[in-house]
Design a protein around this nucleic acid. Structure first.
Lengths: 342, 342
DNA sequence: TTGTAAGCGTTATCAT
DNA sequence: ATGATAACGCTTACAA
């Protein structure tokens, strides 16, 4: 724990700390010889500037705070991966906070981040968050904030999300074109931005093809996997011929329930999940997927934030970036589970 | 960004900073009235001590560093979840670093963590790490370190892992008892601790039941999903009647390959994955699972580390905690994909 | 070209 | 009971 400091170098070389600092910081007024000496010594003893001292001095930390509802979630961990990649390449470190889908936790967690003097905040709103005044306050105090995935129109900030409308439209259109008419729509709680957009895409596609919109085919489910099953069972009473599950865990929960009930996909119903689980590949062919570009969203959001932090973009001008989604069709006519001998 | 400081309070109340500090820290020699005043003011203006200043002063950060091979990995994100829960409940924050399965990155990343003055380090070794002297150095400098999951016997430290031997033994035993004799064993690179233990469990079970050990049935695969398929195909040439995939992504890759080849599970072969993907539930019944208690491992490791940090446990005494695994049998006689109408 | 000193926010030591 | 001062590691006017 006895890391070497500028002071140590100064003492050893009989210089002042300021000279050492200058030598290391590549400053102008410095004797090349002195500089050589210092740099050499620093290297030899593996000197690393103390980031904490720097933070205190410069009132910034080169840390960006990331607040997500859950870390242990495929979508968010991939997004974090993207954030991390960009952040590190631009010299920032990342501290991750979880809101556990709770507004109170989000509040607390954001405070902690601010206390830690993060240079900026990357947030995907918790499921319980409808009021964003805590974030607005921070923005007014000039803290750069970028929202991703779960964004809010209530806040004038940069937002990066998947193109939910188009993705949902494409999914619904595909289902309609393959002959389905009673398409159940399974969504997470309704006040969340992405829910609205996906539902809008769904409705728009129905409208385009003159398929009637039936409210009974729309259901909302909480976040836990267990909550999905009863909702799906309930939907099944509406004799749907397809499911569009507008979320990762919803899609998996739906799939599991259908399997459990012995309902063949795609024979009996068709299923498209708006999802990010790479494991979805395993489920081929039952479930087609509208892929959420989690990694890209993380990367773009991090880029935006760092530009904001470094003043390469003005804080005041909000903007919305929608990352394209990709639809992967995995509906083969081949029944599931057909086996041939080795 | 204009957070209130002790200085501000002092100025406003016409006190010295030291008095304010004392009032807030509940120190002894302090006029109750003064204290009341200070505390009130602090609360009113929502004073929060600057953790960075504290870190600089106390040469510790109340931050623990976590180094994992990949964040976007079900196992590790769950483990991080466990770590996070314990850490926050004990007043620590968590900074996450990725080694990307590379020794060099691990080295670098650990240095960064140390520079950030983390109070302790929780590490799951990268796949590329065989030499652990960088960690030994840190230990000698009295930095508390706890290894989890991917541990090394080369380092005298606390280790927390799944009970890999017993888990692998149980899996293999189950396969043998259900009549399988040529059990392919699919593992991640061989110099990793968990690989060795799982292989040992496998061999022990074979021995117990007098099933011959055939080297041709053992294969190692790299980490990426794509690497798995050729290895599985290769194994299939050895006419196995079962697969034991000793890892999360291996199990999924194996499953995907078998599906692709149209090989029925469990009719043609049997499959047990040593895994953590909750989605495995979806794949029922084809794959039975030996569940790795990722969350528990994270929690226990974090607890150990914090005890170490806070001196509740001496640094010198290494120890090994093995968290029990749980086997979930999902081999029904019902063929996969059989469907009945709604 | 180099050194001195102040300051970032906090606490501990030593006065008063 | 309270205040002044130094110190944590670093940078940056300002002096020399």
């Amino acid at each position: 724990m006895d890391a070497i400091t500028i002071k140590d170098i100064a003492r050893a070389l009989n210089l002042s700390t300021s000279t050492v600092s200058r030598a290391l910081r590549d400053s102008y007024e410095i004797n090349p010889e002195t500089k050589r000496l210092v740099v050499e010594y620093a290297e030899r003893f593996n000197y690393r500037p103390n980031p904490i001292a720097l933070s205190l001095k410069e009132n910034r930390s080169r840390v960006i705070g990331v607040v997500v509802p859950q870390i242990a979630n495929n979508y968010f961990s991939q997004a974090i991966n993207g954030i991390d990649a960009i952040a590190y390449s631009r010299g920032y470190q990342v501290i991750i906070f979880q809101s556990h889908e709770s507004y109170e936790r989000e509040l607390l967690t954001v405070q902690q981040a601010v206390a830690r003097k993060v240079d900026g905040l990357l947030i995907s709103l918790s499921g319980g968050t409808s009021d964003v005044s805590h974030l607005r306050d921070l923005q007014e105090r000039k803290l750069p904030i970028v929202l991703f995935d779960r964004v809010s129109k209530e806040l004038d900030s940069f937002c990066v999300t998947a193109d939910n409308f188009t993705g949902a439209f494409a999914a619904t259109e595909h289902l309609i074109q393959s002959g389905r008419r009673r398409i159940a729509h399974l969504a997470i709680p309704s006040y969340i931005s992405i829910t609205q957009e996906r539902l809008a895409g769904y409705r728009a596609a129905l409208e385009k093809y003159g398929v009637p919109y039936d409210e009974n085919l729309i259901r909302y489910s909480e976040f836990s996997q267990n909550d999905v099953e009863p909702v799906v069972n309930d939907l099944l009473n509406q004799s749907p011929d397809a499911f569009f599950a507008a979320g990762d865990r919803l899609a998996l929960g739906c799939l599991a329930t259908l399997k459990k009930r012995g309902i063949a996909i795609p024979e009996t119903v068709s299923l498209i999940g708006f999802t990010n689980t790479p494991v979805a590949d395993l489920l081929a062919p039952p479930m087609s997927t509208v892929e959420q570009p989690a990694l890209d969203i993380g990367q773009v959001a991090a880029e935006q934030l760092i530009n904001l932090i470094e003043g390469k973009q003005k804080l005041t001008q909000p903007g919305m970036i929608r990352m394209p989604t990709r639809m992967i069709v995995r509906e083969s006519s081949q029944p599931v589970g057909v086996s041939k001998p080795v």
